[in-house]
């Protein structure tokens, strides 16, 4: 069946990333509406390991490009393989997670195809006449744009956490088709050689379903432990405002906002953060926002669903304790 949906999967250490499952689930919904199939391209030695999971979420075919050297990211090779797969499958839509990888590969592949690319969508629609329309945040989250494109294909990245993961019952495993990378390793001029991991394997703010962030209201780096404790109790990741990152209390990887990460978790808890426009840019699309601040006039309260006016040193530990108590009682 020509003219299907192609998804670029992200497999790391034989594990599928959740945002990939969001993209495959979304592709399945679009494919059902359009009456077409879903192909998934996976790169690296564990490309075919996750076939069953991909199938359960909607993949009909898995293009497995399982060369060992593709274990780590190689921008030219990944973009070349994706563009080639899009041509071969005559894809009408190409989707990927709006992760560091997806947002780096898709534009380069789009350039190879002279096609349009929609970045970091919060919503997507595709119509039978070839128009793909999406909703995305622009001007650092201060406006929302509806954008559309009608090139063949249209490429799009999906903001992590903005689309549901949906497993379907009774689906068969996808057909696994070997796929050759169009670029030989010696022709690649840049590639990842290693990953440096932080000491503890922490949840990343951009992917976590719950984020607890701390700001200057914490007064000092030692008090960040309070934020960690609440994040642990909730099963979330630790975020931070730029003020405290600049002060060196936590690494930049934790920064939320315009010059940090843009997050859309189900729950965002801002503790001792005033709510500067550049911080709001990174978190205002969160589903539920809680703010804890002692200043009733703090701008963060204007975006918070639940605002607690009070001293974070009192509130945050009690909050963590109450959550733990609740979880313990089931």
């Amino acid at each position: 069946m020509p003219g299907g949906i192609l998804v670029l999967a992200e497999v790391r250490a034989a594990q599928l990333k959740r945002p990939t499952l969001e993209a495959v689930s979304t592709a399945r919904d679009l494919a059902d509406e359009l009456g077409c199939g879903v192909d998934v391209l996976a790169l690296g030695p564990s490309a075919s390991v996750c076939a069953a999971t991909l199938g359960a979420h909607g993949a009909d075919r898995l293009l497995a490009c399982d060369a060992d050297w593709l274990e780590l990211y190689a921008p030219e090779a990944y973009a070349g393989a994706l563009a080639e797969a899009a041509r071969e499958t005559a894809a009408r839509v190409v989707l990927a997670a709006g992760s560091s990888l997806g947002r780096d590969v898709l534009p380069r592949a789009a350039a190879k195809l002279s096609a349009a690319c929609l970045s970091d969508l919060l919503e997507i629609e595709a119509s039978r006449d070839g128009v793909v329309r999406g909703r995305r945040s622009v001007y650092s989250g201060k406006a929302i744009a509806w954008v559309s494109a009608r090139t063949t294909p249209v490429l799009a990245t999906l903001r992590p956490n903005a689309f549901p993961v949906c497993e379907r019952a009774g689906r068969r495993d996808p057909q696994v088709v070997p796929f050759a990378c169009p670029l030989a390793p010696e022709r690649v001029r840049v590639r990842a050689v290693r990953l440096e991991r932080p000491p503890a394997q922490e949840l990343d703010v951009a992917e976590a379903p719950i984020v607890v962030s701390g700001g200057r209201g914490l007064r000092g780096p030692e008090n960040f432990a309070l934020i960690r404790e609440l994040a642990d109790a909730l099963g979330g990741a630790v975020g931070a405002s730029r003020a405290v990152v600049d002060a060196g209390w936590v690494p930049h990887a934790h920064q939320v906002g315009q010059t940090g990460k843009v997050v859309s978790p189900a729950l965002y808890v801002a503790c001792g953060i005033s709510g500067a426009i550049q911080h709001l840019a990174g978190m205002s699309s969160s589903k539920v926002i809680v703010a804890i601040n002692k200043d009733r006039e703090a701008p963060i309260f204007r975006v918070a669903d639940y605002g607690v006016v009070g001293d974070l040193f009192e509130i945050v530990p009690k909050f963590a304790e109450e959550v733990r108590r609740l979880k313990a009682s089931g």
Binding site: S100, V190, R191, R194, L195, R197
Partner: peptide, 12 residues
């Protein structure tokens, strides 16, 4: 910086 790690790239 990528999700949960720093990716080190080498190139020409």
């Amino acid at each position: 910086g990528i999700e949960g790690a720093v990716e080190v790239l080498e190139g020409r």
